[in-house]
Amino acid sequence: MSNTPLIQIRNLSKSYGSKLVLKNLSLDIYPGQVIGYIGPNGAGKSTTVKILTGLIPEFEGEVLVNGISMQSNPQEIKKLIGYVPENAELYEVLTPMEYLDFIGKLYNMEDEQLHSRASRLLTAFGLGNNKDDRMDTFSKGMRQKVLLISGIIHNPQIIILDEPLSGLDANAVIMIKELIMRLSQEGKTIFYCSHVMDVVEKVSDRILLINKGEIIADGTFESLKQNHADTLERVFAKLTGRDESDNETDAIINAFN
């Protein structure tokens, strides 16, 4: 791994009104790392991702990607990043080919390269026969695949995946997990957000746990295990302050009486 960080976040803060969502976040991410980014709902996970992808232009602190500042030149950074958002938004009246053509052109890709890459990727993801069907007939898993392809179509340096496995069947999940490893071997940096702990545990070589706008754990799964508990799920529960889980289930059981 190289010694200059690819992504540098310094004292990043973001507030909505009086509510502070991110508190002085500082982070260095190196090329080739697979970051597992986890945290409870409302911890500030998606805010971080939205700042990194340029969706939220206003924040305090500094975000540098490949030495470029997010405030001064977001467009250059966006070229380096591929983003697969959580909420599976795409223009479903288009066909996958039309959609990928559109996305690729927004990255200023050449027609020829774009088309051959799009159809090869679609075939590789098992959508070769559906590439000219409109996506409004697609299942959730099929849409998710198109979304994944649209995130990597321009061969980005950094890939940000937000809950990328939703709706995918077991075979596709295995495929994506392998793909993440392969992409990391190719030197891509991957930022992986998820609530599914055992996947995060397996794919990431560095895990960041965010709670209430602060990073409260940072390290390999091995190092987190030593300090806290034996599975990532337990680590998560312990660090986010939910160790007396009996109380909650007690209350639920008692509600029937």
Binding site: G54, Q75, K78, N87, E89, Y91, I103, N108
Partner: peptide, 8 residues
């Protein structure tokens, strides 16, 4: 979510 993350 579709256009904004791209370099536009």
């Amino acid at each position: 979510f579709i256009i904004l993350p791209r370099p536009v």
